[in-house]
């Protein structure tokens, strides 16, 4: 499987490097071109099971593509683009006009939609031009993944921090057109989405660190490069440290998921750490790049805005930390075995 991952990684890198050599992101035309190449290269088939005619890839395979997407701050909601085709196949929907949103609540019971107790809305990033259908991915009472299908009426079109279209669904007012049960585990699905988002974050954060280092080593003030100042060195060291610890957590969680032994703590901690890294890296990069990168003149903002978007997608730190804490605090004296066994 590692050969497949490497091949997909190369495909994604070639495709994106060609499109995004400079500061040319943000046009609808380039976004549409990249999206069609994503399909032309078969990247949409990556997570579709072999039985359904797809490539049957694992999380590591998809991780490579998500990472590259982040590294190039490429347009399009890459995590949804990777996850949707398998669900669309399952639900017999047209993947071109559909998108999905995660709803982390058990709000399907006996195949029937229950109004969620906590969430009042969900945000579904739009893939391509417009979304006619949103699949809200929720859990049923047995912890299986259920797909609640919402039609286009009543959706509010807004935009993400990155300036990309999102559909906002008012869950207090709307009801799904239909609900479809699946045999897939909701936990595994949410974990995969969180880990792929984490990979997109790591890619974008990696590129931001590189940009900041390059700038620190070339920009001179007071007669020497910024990188000679200890305050700048320490700021970058902190950013790279957050990146490294997040990478380590994501790496082990991906390996665990592909080996079928992923624990909730692992993927939740991995998402939490990448969210934390995103915050630290963006702040450091902007501080070091200075005023120019607060403008659209510089490429940095494409990365910043995606990082700010992704840290709140597929598991926000505050919510995941609460869940980890609740589990940890339920262990009595057994905290340590719970963490490592």
């Amino acid at each position: 499987m590692s050969d497949t991952a490497r091949m997909l990684d190369d495909t994604a890198e070639r495709l994106l490097a060609r499109h995004f050599a400079g500061n040319v992101r943000g046009t609808r035309e380039s976004a549409a071109a990249v999206l069609s190449e994503f399909f032309d290269n078969g990247l949409d088939q990556l997570l579709v099971p072999e039985a359904a005619g797809g490539m049957g890839g694992g999380t590591l395979d998809a991780a490579a593509v998500a990472y590259r997407w982040g590294y190039h701050a490429a347009p399009g909601p890459i995590v949804e683009m990777l996850l949707l085709p398998a669900l669309a196949a399952e639900a017999a929907l047209d993947p071109d006009r559909t998108t999905l949103a995660l709803l982390d609540e058990a709000c399907v019971r006996s195949g029937t939609w229950q109004k969620p107790a906590k969430a009042t809305s969900v945000v579904a990033p739009v893939i391509g031009e417009a979304a006619a259908t949103v699949l809200v991915c929720a859990a049923d009472e047995r912890g299986r993944l259920a797909l609640a299908r919402f039609g286009g009426d009543g959706m509010e079109l807004r935009s993400s921090l990155a300036g990309e279209d999102v559909a906002l669904l008012d869950l207090a007012a709307l009801r799904p057109e239909s609900v479809q049960a699946t045999e897939a585990s909701f936990e595994a699905f949410a974990a995969r989405g969180a880990l792929l988002t984490a990979c997109a974050i790591l890619g974008a954060a990696q590129r931001q660190i590189e940009i900041a280092i390059e700038h620190a080593n070339t920009r001179k003030q007071f007669g020497k490069p910024l990188g000679k100042f200890q305050a700048i060195q320490h700021r970058l060291a902190e950013a790279a440290s957050e990146q490294a610890v997040a990478q380590a957590a994501v790496r082990s969680a991906i390996a665990a998921q592909d080996a079928g032994r992923l624990k909730p703590l692992q993927w939740q901690a991995a998402k939490v750490q990448t969210g934390r890294a995103a915050t630290t890296v963006v702040a450091a990069a902007h501080q070091i790049l200075g005023a120019i990168a607060f403008t659209e003149e510089h490429v940095l903002h494409h990365y910043s805005k995606r990082l700010w978007t992704w840290r709140d997608a597929w598991g926000r730190e505050a919510e995941l930390e609460r869940r980890i804490g609740a589990q940890a605090c339920a262990q009595g004296a057994g905290l340590w075995p719970w963490m490592v066994d």
């Binding site: 082990s252 939490v272 869940r323 804490g325 940890a328 963490m339």
Partner: peptide
């Protein structure tokens, strides 16, 4: 287990960090 959300979130932040540093 009966602690409030704020306490759980504060503890969870530490436990997540510990788990990640151990991976590193």
């Amino acid at each position: 287990a009966s602690g409030d959300d704020r306490a759980h979130a504060e503890v969870g932040r530490l436990v997540a960090r510990l788990s990640a540093i151990r991976d590193l």
